[in-house]
Design a protein around this nucleic acid. Structure first.
Lengths: 110, 110
DNA sequence: TTTATTAATTGCAATATTACGATTAATATT
DNA sequence: AATATTAATCGTAATATTGCAATTAATAAA
């Protein structure tokens, strides 16, 4: 892809972009929404729920876990996933700050 | 890349992922932050500010504009960019709703 | 122990992204 | 008109991502 030159950006900018990147695919958005919706934690029925192949779902789960937004617990042959609440909250703080940048008292150029 | 199967997701999920995707690169995060910081609108000094080549910056601006988050105004030989406030606010509503999904009264599996 | 179930890993094909040099387009300036 | 400045576009190389089939790993159940 031609790597992103992360060294020329701030830690904050890199962090924001990493979080955003993981939200940058509808399958991962869908997985997260499902994990929020379901009271008990979910495992492989995400495959049925979403309709992508098992290895594909597994990959997406891996990325979400790698970023710390979900955690997985082995239960027999299945793995139970759930939102990592503390990390989700921390992420939310970072992203919200970015989204809420000041919009006031500046006039458009256009 | 193997295209994302957008047809199997909701419009909302696709919209969230499109917004997130554009924030998924630190250069674009940086460009947006700069546009917010600078009172008057900015043009090509983003190149100096950020340190990527002019065609690269131009590409990133194009993506931001395509999604409607910024607008550009031609002023002589230069182009003046600024945040598209209405669209930014609308985007913020969508993203905030996603980030603020209910975290309460569910216990972890792990 | 054998078989079934579940999920991760590997390997691959298709496509997307990032970055930049070279060029082009368009307006300003001289 | 000639030149300078600014930014978009084109082409291309390098790398990343998505998705799946095939396989492997690991535990449960028989």
């Amino acid at each position: 892809m031609g790597l992103a030159k992360t060294e020329m950006f701030t830690d904050q900018q890199n962090e924001i972009s990493l979080f955003a990147k993981v939200f940058g695919h509808p399958a991962r958005v869908s997985i997260l929404q499902h994990l929020f919706k379901i009271d008990s934690c979910v495992c492989g029925d995400l495959v049925n729920e979403i309709g992508l192949a098992q290895p594909t779902i597994s990959q997406h789960l891996k990325e979400l876990k790698h970023l710390g937004l979900i955690k997985g617990n082995v239960e027999g042959t299945s793995v139970c996933y759930c939102i990592h609440k503390e990390n989700w909250t921390a992420m939310k703080t970072v992203m919200t700050e970015f989204l809420n940048q000041d919009l006031t008292q500046k006039q458009d150029c256009c």
